[in-house]
């Protein structure tokens, strides 16, 4: 049992490090561009990685109170991606 718990803790640390690395790498893509679509895509990936971080925090602390947080981040991330794309496409968000 302690072997399993140790394995899970190591996996948890590895996934925290990997998701933070992924966040930093998509931030690099956000900075270097080169196009508007790439920047929107990088922001979308950062939102997904933020959801992953919140879920991992919930697993690490053993609580369930973070699900609402990740659900709201998911909804707002989708809406903001669509808003960016529509602003580029139409020059306006709500016509």
């Amino acid at each position: 049992m302690s072997f399993a718990l140790g394995f899970m803790n190591i996996a948890l640390v590895i996934s925290f490090v990997v998701v933070i690395l992924a966040q930093i790498m998509s931030m690099i893509r956000l900075v270097i561009g080169p196009g508007t679509g790439d920047r929107i895509l990088a922001l979308d990936t950062m939102v997904v990685n933020a959801i992953a971080l919140v879920v991992l925090l919930g697993v690490a602390q053993g609580t369930r109170i973070y699900f609402e947080v990740s659900l709201i981040i998911a909804m707002l991330g989708f809406v903001s991606t669509v808003a960016y794309a529509r602003f580029v496409l139409r020059g306006d968000i709500i016509e």
Partner: peptide, 20 residues
């Protein structure tokens, strides 16, 4: 749980490396 965490981290890393 540990295997799912490892699989998820591998796929996250692969996707973001592809993005870069």
């Amino acid at each position: 749980v540990a295997l799912c965490l490892l699989i998820g981290s591998i796929f996250s890393l692969v996707g973001v490396i592809g993005l870069l």
